[in-house]
Nucleic acid binder design. Sequence first.
DNA 1: AACTGCTGACTAAGCGCTTGCTTACTTGCT
DNA 2: AGCAAGTAAGCAAGCGCTTAGTCAGCAGTT
Lengths: 202, 202
Amino acid sequence: MTETTDLPRAAATRARLLDAAVSAFAERGFHATTTRDIAAAAGMSPAALYVHHQSKEELLYLISRSGHERTLALVRDGLVGSEDPVKQLVSVVRRFAIDHARGHTVARVVNYELAALSPEHFEEIRQIRQEIDHEVRRLVESGMAAGVFQVRDAGMTTLALLSLGIDIARWYRDEGTWTPEDIGDHYAELALRIVGVDLSSL
Amino acid sequence: MTETTDLPRAAATRARLLDAAVSAFAERGFHATTTRDIAAAAGMSPAALYVHHQSKEELLYLISRSGHERTLALVRDGLVGSEDPVKQLVSVVRRFAIDHARGHTVARVVNYELAALSPEHFEEIRQIRQEIDHEVRRLVESGMAAGVFQVRDAGMTTLALLSLGIDIARWYRDEGTWTPEDIGDHYAELALRIVGVDLSSL
DNA sequence: AACTGCTGACTAAGCGCTTGCTTACTTGCT
DNA sequence: AGCAAGTAAGCAAGCGCTTAGTCAGCAGTT
């Protein structure tokens, strides 16, 4: 029995198909991408896609799930390094921005193709998004409670912080002058301004 | 000859088709929308669409063009009320945010379906977007020159301001608790923080 | 070392359906 | 009577996905 161990060859092919799907979905969108496009980009016949995946939508779901789980983990990683809300905010926003710039292809699929998921898959993804929102909201509220963030509305501020980060996936181009790290640093400063931290005190 | 005067009936039908297209494109995306969807939503047969428009893509182009022109005009209107960069920024961001919230359906099509335009149409739209960017950039630079905006990078700040406004189209829901005006006020304040205006001085 | 039977990876061909759009025609207002 | 507005029917192309099969590699027998 070789069921349990993922055979290297099959795993590699699955990964190639997923990579091809990410590129195609990011560039043209889910509905404008054909299964023939994906298979051709992976160097295979259209039928091969169905050897490794149940449907075109399953590809989107797998991409979307791993992308969202990655972002959630990245946000949580940014929180554990310190107890100081200011440092946490800088760390979270910086990571979030860098990841959305460097991985803008995946991030585009993750954030702009949600409507193409099946209702069941969408619901699962929606919950991960909610957890991400929740982590950032808690951070904002802890900074407010500690008196270091001067914020009028925690919900609106949380939304604005996430919104800025997500929208990087829309506008970022590899040919641009800013590196993902430049953007991360800049956005961390913007975040501090947004939450009303006095920058001269740093 | 009745060529010059747009006959009321035809004009009304054209508008109904455009409205139906906006709703459908915003909800499902351009490629997931069929001409039958649009025609049915406008209460007509599929063929009627082609009495009034050349193609499905033409509908997207007309929506995109008028939407972009509207946004450009709105930004320019926000600039003429005052010579003070602070007041101009508040006015521009407030209008921009309110319009993207209230008109989130159009704004979604305008900002997220650009890839579905023909190359020629895309180029035309891209130029309008560039003009919008340019107006905001000039505003940021004028505030820097006047010494009232404390900004490290004019380009990044311009991008962040526009980014926040555009992303409203993605997350705004009619069922939410905030009105477009609430969002406009909040975003105007966020904009002032982003450009480093001391809020206690207002 | 040769043979046999089996399995997982992959494909050629194509099915049933939907798509954007057209054609030939009818309707109803002026 | 004439013409713009609108439709029923359908065409060619392309879609997601399936079917039936090929083929390389490998374990077990001889």
